[in-house]
Write a protein that binds this DNA or RNA. Structure first.
Length: 622
DNA sequence: GCCGTTTTCGGCCCGACTGTTTTCAGTCG
C-alpha cells in the first residue's frame, strides 16, 4: 500500500468513527473529503511532510489535517484515530458496509440494543427484538436480511473490464424498449475509473415524470406508478434483488455473466459459489434535462461540488434538472424546477459548461483537480490515436496466438507496428525463451517481414527485471532486439526503497525502451510495489524511456494518479495491451481511459507516433 | 474540519426513494 493509500485509510476510518459517535456531519465529511484528496493526490504524500504549506495547498486539506498527515507519516498512526477507536466497538465499522445501513441506524443499534458487531445484529434479527427498535418494521428487517445475504460482494468494487461489458449489454436492452429516446451509463464507469462501485444508467424517455411540486402528495411507489421501463428493468432475468423501484428511479442487484475464461473459476478461493452481482441504478430523464442529469450523475461528487459553487457565485443554482437563475432572495424556496423557473441551460452538457463559463471537461478528468479552471478543453489522447502495439506475446511463451496470427490481428486493427515481446528466460512458468529460442524467433520475424506487408514487425522481448534490477538477458542479446520492454514479475512485495533502486537500474539501462507494468499491481487483488514514482519519472524522462500503462483491466499499471504525475513531468508513456490472446487487443480502451484520467496528451504516448518517429526513437537506443 | 474578492464566522449540493410515519428521518449518490 502506498503511503497515500495508508494515510487516506486512516482519515476514512476517522470519518466513519466520528459518524458513529454522532459528530457534526460537516466534520465527518471534511475527514472523508480529506481521505479522497490524499488518495487521489498525484505525488507521494510522504514527500510533502517537510513542506507543510504544500500539504495545505491540497483542496480539502487544512491546517489540522496537514498536522495529522505529518503525524501519520512520521509515527505510522494518528493519536486522534487511536482515541476514536477506543470509543467505538470495532465490529460496528463492518456493519456500515451493509447496504441500506448508515451511521444513524448502526449507532441506534449500538446505543439502544447493545449491538457491537455483525453477530449481535443477527441475534436481534433472529430473536425479533429488532422490531422493538425505532423505525424498524417488518419490511426494514426483511431488507436488512436480504442485504446481509449479499454483504460479501456488496462492499467490493468491480473491475472496469467486468463492469463495462455488463453496462453495454444493459444499455442495448434499454435502447430496444418502446418510448426510449436515449441511454447512457454515467458514474465512475463513464469517468473510466479502474473499478466501479455500481452502475448508473440514465434513460431518456418521452414521458418522463415531471419534477415533483411541493404541494403535491408524495405518493410512495406502488406497482401502479412504477414506470414501464423501470418495471421491465426489475423484471430482467439476471436481477437478483430489487432495492427500489419508483416513478423515476429503480435500483437492483444484477448478476454478472462471466465470459472471460482467464477470470472464471478464480473467485479469491473463499469457497463461495454465489453468482457475483453489482448494484445498478437506473434513472429516467426528460430529454430537456438530459445534459444536467448526465453531468450530475457522472460526477465526481467533488467535481459537482465545485461546479455548484461556480453556479452560486454567478447567482445560479445547478442541479440534476438544469442550471437555473436563483437570486439570493429566493434561496429559501422550493427547488427552481418545481416553481416553474426556466432553466438557462439543461439539454446538453456542452451548453451547461458554457453557461458556467467553464471549458468543456472530458468525463475522465472530472475529479476536482483543477479541471474547471482550464482556459480550454485539454487535448487528451483518444483510442483512435493509438497506432502501435509494443507488448505482445505469442505461443512461443504464454500467448495463445501464433506469430503469424498475432501480426495479422494487429494489421487488421489498423496498427502500423506490432512488436513481438515474449517472456525472457527466467519466466519459467510463462515458458520464457532461452537465448537460442529467442535468436530463432528473431530470424523467424525477419522472414515474416518478407511475407506480410502493410505492417512493421519488430523483434522484442519482455525482459524480466530481476529482484536486484539486473535484466534477464545479457547486453549483447538485448542489442539484437528492436524493442526491449523491461518488466518486474517477481519479488513484488519489495519495500519502496529497494523497488525504487531496482526499477531505476532498469530505466538507466541504455537498451531499455519501455518499463512494463512498473508496479506489478493487480487491481483489487495485489498491491504491487510502491516505488518513489517521482524518481522513476525523472529518470525515465532523462533517459527517454517510456513508462507503460498496461491496458489489461486486471493491471492498469501505471494507474491514473501515476500517469498524472508523469504527464505533468512530460515523461514519455506507452499504452500496451500486453496481448496474450486475440481479445486482449480490446483492452486498449481501458488503457486509454486510464491515460485520459492522467491527462495524457497524444504526443506524450509513443504508441501514437508516426512509424518513422517511433523507429527513430527505438534506434536511438541501439 | 475546511473555506474565503459576500474572509476569521457561518456557512457547507441537493433530490429520489423507502419505511414508518401522521409530517419526516435515514440512506444513497
Amino acid at each position: 500500500m502506498s503511503s497515500n493509500e495508508a494515510v487516506a485509510a486512516c482519515f476514512e476510518e476517522m470519518a466513519r468513527l466520528l459518524d458513529l459517535l454522532g459528530a457534526d456531519s460537516f466534520r465527518v465529511s471534511a475527514h472523508a473529503r480529506a481521505a479522497r484528496a490524499i488518495a487521489d493526490h498525484p505525488a507521494d504524500i510522504a514527500t510533502l511532510v517537510a513542506d507543510r504549506a504544500a500539504l495545505t495547498k491540497i483542496d480539502g486539506v487544512g491546517s489540522k489535517t496537514a498536522d495529522k498527515i505529518i503525524e501519520c507519516i512520521n509515527t505510522g498512526t494518528i493519536a486522534e484515530l487511536k482515541e476514536l477507536r477506543a470509543q467505538v466497538p470495532p465490529g460496528l465499522l463492518e456493519l456500515l458496509h451493509i447496504p441500506g445501513l448508515g451511521p444513524k441506524t448502526v449507532r441506534m443499534f449500538w446505543k439502544d440494543a447493545g449491538v457491537i458487531d455483525k453477530a449481535g445484529l443477527k441475534r436481534i434479527i433472529d430473536d425479533g427484538t429488532i422490531l422493538n427498535l425505532p423505525r424498524m418494521g417488518a419490511k426494514s428487517v426483511e431488507k436488512l436480511k436480504a442485504s446481509l445475504a449479499f454483504e460479501n460482494e456488496a462492499g467490493k468494487r468491480l473491475n472496469i473490464g467486468l463492469a463495462m461489458p455488463l453496462a453495454e449489454r444493459l444499455v442495448e436492452r434499454f435502447k430496444a424498449m418502446a418510448g426510449v429516446i436515449g441511454v447512457q451509463f454515467a458514474g465512475s464507469l463513464r469517468r473510466g475509473k479502474d473499478t466501479v462501485g455500481d452502475l448508473d444508467i440514465l434513460v431518456a424517455v418521452a414521458d418522463a415524470p415531471a419534477a415533483p411540486t411541493p404541494g403535491a402528495s408524495k405518493a410512495k411507489s406502488t406497482d401502479d406508478n412504477v414506470h414501464p421501463v423501470l418495471a421491465a428493468f426489475v423484471a430482467m432475468p439476471d436481477i437478483k434483488q430489487v432495492l427500489a423501484a419508483g416513478e423515476r428511479k429503480a435500483s437492483a442487484r444484477v448478476a454478472l455473466n462471466f465470459t472471460s475464461t482467464r477470470w472464471k473459476g478464480d473467485d479469491d478461493g473463499d469457497g463461495s459459489d454465489k453468482t457475483p452481482t453489482i448494484q445498478v441504478d437506473v434513472r429516467l430523464i426528460a430529454a430537456d434535462a438530459w445534459g444536467a442529469a448526465l453531468m450530475y450523475f457522472t460526477g465526481s461528487k467533488d467535481h459537482n461540488v465545485v461546479l455548484r459553487g461556480l453556479a452560486r457565485d454567478k447567482g445560479l443554482t445547478l442541479n440534476e434538472y438544469g442550471l437555473f437563475p436563483d437570486p439570493e432572495a429566493e434561496r429559501d424556496q422550493a427547488p427552481p424546477q418545481s416553481r416553474g423557473v426556466k432553466a438557462i441551460a439543461s439539454r446538453s452538457e456542452e451548453e451547461i459548461f458554457k453557461a458556467l463559463g467553464v471549458a468543456w471537461v472530458p468525463p475522465e478528468i472530472r475529479e476536482a483537480h483543477g479541471e474547471t479552471s482550464l482556459p480550454q478543453t485539454p487535448s487528451l489522447i483518444t483510442l483512435a490515436d493509438v497506432k502501435a502495439e509494443l507488448h505482445a506475446h505469442t505461443t512461443a511463451s504464454d500467448g495463445r496466438l501464433s506469430l503469424r496470427e498475432l501480426v495479422l490481428e494487429a494489421k487488421s486493427r489498423g496498427f502500423h507496428t506490432i512488436t513481438v515481446t515474449d517472456h525472457s528466460k527466467s519466466s519459467a512458468v510463462a515458458n520464457g525463451l532461452s537465448v537460442e529460442r529467442l535468436l530463432a524467433q528473431i530470424d523467424e520475424i525477419h522472414r515474416l517481414r518478407g511475407e506480410i506487408d502493410g505492417i512493421t514487425i519488430l523483434a522484442g522481448s519482455e525482459v524480466d527485471i530481476l529482484a536486484d534490477g539486473v535484466l534477464d538477458y545479457d547486453d549483447d542479446i538485448l542489442a539484437r532486439l528492436d524493442v526491449v520492454v523491461a518488466s518486474p514479475h517477481v519479488a513484488l512485495s519489495q519495500d519502496p526503497a529497494t523497488s525504487t533502486k531496482r526499477l531505476l537500474k532498469a530505466i538507466r539501462h541504455p537498451m531499455v525502451h519501455v518499463i512494463g507494468h512498473p508496479t506489478g499491481r493487480l487491481v483489487n487483488r495485489r498491491a504491487g510495489m510502491s516505488p518513489a514514482m517521482n524518481e522513476l519519472i525523472a529518470a525515465a524522462k532523462e533517459h527517454r524511456v517510456a513508462l507503460e500503462i498496461n491496458a489489461h483491466w486486471m493491471r492498469l499499471d501505471l494507474r491514473d494518479t501515476h500517469v498524472r504525475q508523469a504527464t505533468e513531468a512530460d515523461c514519455m508513456m506507452a499504452i500496451d495491451c500486453d496481448v496474450h490472446e486475440r481479445d486482449d487487443f480490446n483492452n486498449l480502451r481501458y488503457g486509454v481511459l486510464t491515460a485520459r484520467r492522467g491527462w495524457l496528451r497524444k504526443e506524450q504516448c509513443v504508441n501514437t507516433w508516426p512509424a518513422a518517429d517511433l523507429q527513430a526513437w527505438l534506434k536511438s537506443k541501439r
